[in-house]
Design a binder for these strands. Structure first.
Lengths: 136, 136
DNA sequence: CTAACTGCAAAACTTTTGCATTAGT
DNA sequence: ACTAATGCAAAAGTTTTGCAGTTAG
């Protein structure tokens, strides 16, 4: 895990600073999507601006990815560190569960990209509704 | 179109005010997703706060829906006024095209919601990559 | 008429920018 | 030592809140 992280930084000629190590460690520790607010709160010794800049870099090199929860975003580890998956979110209580990539999805993405002549780099497939507890 | 709109307001006991008519008209006229910023600019006689409040109400009753473009959102007409569809967006130039709901998608959503015991109310399936012009 | 809606002022929150200082290799 | 990264201050942008005044039914 840490090796992958270090190699990723090296590969992009980026320094392995304390601030970057801390941010990465927070995601490894939490193992769940965090909002920017959560993250800034967890980075109590790192300046808010630095957190934004680290997130920016981490997204570019694939350490982190943004996912949608409602119309806000959250951050979680990228596919290098966490198996590709999607989310199902409760509108009422915010509970979030993960599900695997459906099998047909890659084919469908390929078909659509061919039809529209796009080269696809990312896709999102997110569900929202009421969880078992909140539907009662 | 306008009838549907009026009926939707009536159904929810909401007044058909000038501000609401204007906002609806803007989306009918533009026929494409607008950012909040675009919308506020287009509503030059309506206070910014009122626009936010109208969007809020419109989302709740299904006149509008939010979609993701990158990690910002845009607003467009809900399924009552526009056939359900998804978007493919160019990361480089922002160009956006629509595609129809893939056939298997409903089944898949049903299967996942059953497995996780959620009652699903919304789903999003968005693609991002480079368009024909930008991939050159 | 009166409840619902809007405008205005202000606050809260989020994100970006520029520059001086510090830390990594 | 030299460059990249960080912290700080400040600005820009977005969204929310409270309240007084206005409008639709």
């Amino acid at each position: 895990m840490d090796q992958d992280f270090n190699q990723l930084l090296e590969k992009h000629r980026l320094s392995n600073t304390n601030a970057r190590k801390s941010v990465f460690a927070i995601f490894i520790k939490n193992q769940k999507p965090l909002s920017m607010r959560d993250l800034i709160a967890a980075c109590k010794d790192i300046d808010r601006v630095t957190v934004y800049r680290i997130v920016d870099v981490f997204e570019k090199i694939g350490v982190l990815q943004r996912i949608q929860q409602g119309w806000k975003y959250k951050l979680e580890l990228g596919d290098t560190f966490k198996k590709h998956h999607h989310h199902i979110t409760c509108i009422s209580c915010g509970a979030q569960e993960e599900f695997d990539e459906p099998e047909w999805l890659d084919n469908e993405v390929a078909a659509i990209s061919k039809k529209h002549q796009f080269s696809i780099q990312q896709h999102s497939f997110e569900l929202r509704g009421l969880c078992r507890n909140c539907r009662k």
